[in-house]
Amino acid sequence: MIVRTSLTGPFPRSEALVQATRDLDRGRTTREAVDGLFDAAEGDIVRLEDRLGVDAVTGGYLRWADLFRPFSQTWSGFTVGSEVTRWFETNTFYRQPILHAPPDRVPGAIARHLPAAARAHGAARAKVILPGPYTFAGLLDNRSGETVEALTHRLGRLLADEVRELRGLGYATFQFQEPLLVVRPPEGPAAESVVAAYRSLGTALEGAVSIVWTFFGDARPAFPLLGRLAVGVIGCDLTETDAETLPALPAGRGLGLGCIDPRTTFVEDPGDVARIVRAVNDRLRPASIWLGPGAPLDLLPWEPATRKVHLLASARAALAGPGGAA
């Protein structure tokens, strides 16, 4: 059994960063001072990830205001919405990207937004986390005149170009956030546009580690579609998805099991996680199993997130004990 671990989204900001960013908004500190704190915090997270033995570090994506902001602020065709919109069934919000014309990427723009500490650690060992084309197309305010299906496909092509550029910088692991695929699973032409978008991405991802991570919904009904996407690993949120009845993926695919629930400070039992992983492996025989938080950890404050993330190491250790090696 091949077991890998990594974070699956942004890490929360520390209390010091919370205070510093508040101070910045109130004019009580400088951008340079806050940037220095961000750099240090990203470095702390990379060191934490290293200690936990994760297979790809993230650096926490602390500067990203939301999943879409680096894109809506830099790519052409977008403006950033002034109102905030609820982020699924959580008490957090995002600014909806407003698309006025067919979008286009700006070379170098997204690379500049990736955590520098993770890249400094070695781009080949860093995970790039990007919005998936279906979630991106579905959650923006589309005033471009393009259908959502055409837009999904277009975003797939643009993200593929982004992947090519980032691979040129040495990045080798890419994860696409696709909560909408399980919260509002596409059907008919919409589903085909998702397959087409990932076909475009697949050509750019060849030879890289590619992951689609779903969360905030039960992934099982979407598995037939998820199995058609040209990526190596499909991740699901075990808070929403029953692992015992998880369907099989096509041969050769890896399975992501989101075993840390960021909706509670209750710390999961590594023994429970090990039992689930073994049962899934015995039944489905995926090419690999990726363990990570079920949904992004920034639904928690920094301290409990730090406490909970140790489960990645303890579950791996439990799996290495009697009954299966990781």
């Binding site: 929360p12 209390e15 205001a65 957090t92 919000f93 509670t264 920034d298 928690l300 404050p301 920094w302």
Partner: peptide, 17 residues
Amino acid sequence: FQGHVRSFDNKYYLKAA
């Protein structure tokens, strides 16, 4: 009380368990 959770941008709220 566990600490602050980001609501959006640089806005946060304190949350307990």
